[in-house]
Amino acid sequence: MSDERRRMAGGLDYRHGRIELWHGSGGRAMAQLIEELFETSFDNPFLARRNDQACFEVGAGRLVMTTDGFVIAPLFFPGGDIGCLAVHGTVNDIAMAGARPLYLAVAMIIEEGFPLADLKAIVASMAAAAKAAGVAIVTGDTKVVERGKGDGIFITTTGVGVVPAGVEISAERARPGDAVLLSGSIGDHGVAVLSKRESLAFETELLSDCASLHDLVARMVEAVPGIHAMRDPTRGGLAALLNEIAQQSGVGIALNEDAIPVAPAVRGACELLGLDPLYVANEGKLVAFCAAEDADRLLAVMRAHPLGRDAARIGTVVEDSRRFVQMQTGFGGHRIVDWLAGDQLPRIC
């Protein structure tokens, strides 16, 4: 159908159209948006029944549930956009419990004036990511706020998944002696996003590492069901994750800087901007803590998976009542790897 005919027929005008307040007001315009965009893109029988909730069978065992809000500037960045991010982020939070993700719910808060073409691209990206992850987006909600009261679009996704029997992965289970395994290079996502920020804008071929990790996790859990703790380093980077686990498990962590994979482009950008890659965000990496005797087997499984090719053993859990994360620097000295205070800021001296 041509754009003209679509407009004549009352279809959504993706070329020039923008979100208007009535797209969220519960009337015909909202129904049209849901039908023409969301139902068509997310395409599943749960959504097609047009209930305010999704009803599904649950097998025996344990369910995990998680929710995550997504705000990002810019909305489209090298290697991804807010749409696929909203799927990967929640899929990964489910997967970090060793679980298999099943269903997602999505809530969108859209600013008046947001281009329909951008919304379409974001929804298509969500649909593709969900399909690749084997999860269905089964229910959702749309609200529109007045121009100036939102930053384009905010997306919240909620997900459920099932944990296989015998798997007990939790942040308080790291033990002294555990190996710390990282699935690949750090900082790619944060640097890719920064490179497109208006105030910084620099050239890089780097892409966000934005990916769903459930399949990698499934292989890992199959090989070593007794993984103690697992988490994906997102905001706050690897440093925040390690401090969280040290805090929850009441242990210290000893890192070896030389073992931590960082892409040359990330290191270069961090040097220029005065940032530390340990604190830069990721969206497709994980860190696993397992008994030392399982480490080699788990590492081999990770490296055999496309999303874990560069996996490395980066450190060891140690006894430390102060719960410090410490690192032997590549230079030969030692330092603490602390939580980030505030935001990472470029140095001025």
Binding site: A254, N256, A259, T316, D320, R322, F324, Q328, H334, I336
Partner: peptide, 15 residues
């Protein structure tokens, strides 16, 4: 710099 190195043996293991 709050902590002085107390973890050298563990690091040797890690690397």
């Amino acid at each position: 710099g709050r902590a002085r190195p107390t973890m050298a043996p563990a690091l040797a293991d890690a690397s």
